[in-house]
Design a protein around this nucleic acid. Sequence first.
DNA 1: GTAATATAGCTTTTT
DNA 2: GCTATATTAC
Length: 660
Amino acid sequence: MHEVFLKSLNKLQLEAATFGAGPLLVLAGAGSGKTKVLTSRIAHLILNGKMEPKKILAATFTNKAAREIKERLVPFIGERTEELWAGTFHTIGLRVLREEKKAAGDAAELTIYDEEEQDLLIRLVMSEMSINERDVPYKAARFEINMAKNSDLGPEDLACKSKHLFADVIAAIYREYEKRLAAMNALDFGDLICKPLKLFRQRPEVLEKYRERFDHILVDEYQDTNGSQYRLTKTLAGKKRNLFAVGDPDQSIYGWRGATIENILNFKADYPEARIIKLEQNYRSTGNILSAANSVIKNNGERLEKTLWTDNLGGEPVHYEECLNEYGEARFVVDRVRNLMAMNPGTGYRDFTVLYRTNTQSRPFEEMFFEEGVPYTIVGGYRFFDRKEIKDALAYLKALRNPDDSLNFLRIINVPPRGIGRAALEKAHSIARAENLSLYGAFRRGVEDGVFKNESVREFIGTFENLRSEISVRPLHEFTRRVLDLTGYLDMWAEKKTEDAAERIKGLDGLVAAIKNYEAGNPKATLADYLNLVSLMSDADSYEDKYNRVTLMTIHSAKGLEFPYVFMAGMEEGLFPHKRSIDGETVEEERRLCYVGMTRARKELYLLSAKQRASGKETNTAAPSRFLKEIDPAFIRVKEPPPEGRAEDHIAKIRKLLGS
DNA sequence: GTAATATAGCTTTTT
DNA sequence: GCTATATTAC
């Protein structure tokens, strides 16, 4: 009990951090020091319990959270943090699969498919099966397949259990989809959890190895784990039952992704001997913010009773401002940021964040911030790696590294247009089917057999093979540059005179620079390592607060973060709670999301709504969100008169208009 | 057979 | 506002 890192813990936090063996569930309210307890516990296990770092498994929600845990542990265990198995469930699953593939002597690399690639494959499968989009929209098929994987269900289970009208058709799509993924050495996100489970079922000796390896398993954000992740956790915990789960049912906001609160609610049923510790003291927010948030979450039905409290009484009341439209919201934020910075020396742009329900809401803020010269960063939304040119470039890299990946090969074979159209593709497809080859294999066979009269096919396959032989002989960024040059992809954009072409080229330069940067930090990394990293990287992972800028992000992305000043924009019926959640009867999850957003704030919380909001071509009028009405009036101040300093702003603006 | 151009369709949250 | 698709042009 002498360790320094335990000193700053309160009684309950200390009990959780130093808990001995066996299952423990920590119900940790917002701002109750959850991460501190988690890291303290790991440090305690290693320093006091003499545990090997490599025998500890910590599953977090984002890679960034895992990185933070490691960083916090460095002062105590130094570079041994690298031995820890810390990462998202997906990262951990991939690590197991790669390790076992290698152990089995299989050198082939796995490719991870994101949602876009998943959709392409599903649509390809559906068209080959002649399934009408009108009967089964591909998005419905994707949803059902993903939900099945979230619960560790195969095609047969889906056929029985899905409530979908065409459940048996979707099950057939699922079966074919699985076959194709396997042939391409590809995995979707769900597979990263399901395939390890399958492996453990089929090979008990492999499972035994991992059970032996992990003495302690810690799971963060337990309220947002899905059925498969739960099963994986339980499977690995095995007989040792050293499972430490931390979560807050009130912050469960990923139900749409298959997360089930039941994992928390049933903990005691699975582990009757479990100790349950509630952390209810909040160290983050003022009393007013906390009380306002509590008065909202109270309106949810089935809750585990939990009352968050704080010593930090009072503070500014939560401020609600009804604006004219979305630009009014942005205007308000700019004015308020400037005022608060002027009145509070030492406060910087980094202390402010704007949270919203949907990514599209960021636009008016971007415009206004840009015009007004307010520095900002956006987390999420249109990600760099989602840009078309980046996706194309990565498709080249993926196809080169894993030539079985027919989907990405198909994506790039005629980009730039090189005269390989439908006819050539049909030919290759029939060879592939007849000879049981990948698309690339079929093209190669066709070229060898002289099937293609088209010279450009021979040429491209030649280029492709040459590039393949260069993969591991050059640094990655050089290789990437060469791919972009030799395939003519860069020239394709260079020759275009459109305005966006220059942007695309910039994007590609950015990719090469990013890869170079990655190589500098990871000298031993392979192309496969880089591609996997990109696939598993989340928006939150790339968020850095080292820049002194206002942050813009969705409330989902803000999970686990905190800021002195928080603006929640778009507090309107139909937007928040979102219309689709009202229709789908998941308003309680929206309410939890609102709770998550409000509890991000340390000092001051501003809630904004717009009377009118442009959406697409039309402008909608919306009523203020029901969540606003749920806030106890004692803690909220509605539309305070404009603070001082604003008048000067107006004078300055008039001066500017007059050009003086 | 392939490429360039116009049109429709969609934007809840993301590992 | 952006991309996949359908249509027309070469």
